[in-house]
């Protein structure tokens, strides 16, 4: 009888989930949610991800850059959220991530258009990334000359920059300002 009284006093502690929705606590780190329209393919998330759950690679035909996320490997650390410059990736509240019979359902991908190097015409980054940077240049308050030089500089692939370092310094003085 005493035990029953105690039980009544403290009430029912069991969560009703899964028969009714469960509200996660504030600051809960759920599945990273990807906003395709905001992603510029800068690969910051792929570099930051400690478990390689996020990858940004060329596709097989080598004509698109593919962002790929494997939820099965994610450890919910939030580093991708921290580094993403556009907010394309944010840790959400979704905790219902289990899948049955088909592992492919854990995967999410996004294709992005490629940009080619001004000098060697090799694909090295995405069109969106370049356009994003150019848009940013316009809002810093530089002169048109500096902006033009910087735009040319970012449209050159890292290899060309390395091999032709001396030429570039003379070509794009503005990039060093």
């Amino acid at each position: 009888m005493k035990l029953l009284d105690m039980t009544l006093k403290y009430g029912n502690a069991t969560h009703d989930y899964p028969f009714s929705p469960y509200a996660v606590p504030e600051g809960f780190r759920g599945k990273p949610e990807y906003e395709y329209d905001l992603c510029i393919g800068c690969t910051a998330c792929a570099v930051a991800c400690p478990s390689n759950a996020m990858n940004v690679e060329l596709n097989e035909a080598k004509d698109k850059l593919v962002w790929e996320f494997d939820c099965g490997r994610c450890i919910y650390c939030g580093r991708c959220d921290e580094v993403c410059p556009t907010g394309a990736i944010r840790l959400g509240q979704n905790f219902e991530t289990a899948v049955r019979f088909n592992k492919e359902d854990l995967i999410e991908t996004g294709e992005l258009e490629l940009e080619h190097c001004l000098k060697c015409n090799k694909a090295f980054t995405t069109k969106k990334l370049i356009a994003y940077c150019v848009q940013n240049f316009l809002k810093v308050g530089w002169t048109q000359e500096v902006i033009d030089e910087k735009t040319k500089y970012i449209q050159t692939c890292p290899e060309c920059k390395k091999h032709d370092a001396a030429g570039l310094i003379t070509d794009y003085k503005g990039a060093r300002r």
Partner: peptide, 8 residues
């Protein structure tokens, strides 16, 4: 399950 493979 409510996850599905998404390809953007």
């Amino acid at each position: 399950q409510n996850l599905k493979r998404v390809d953007h």
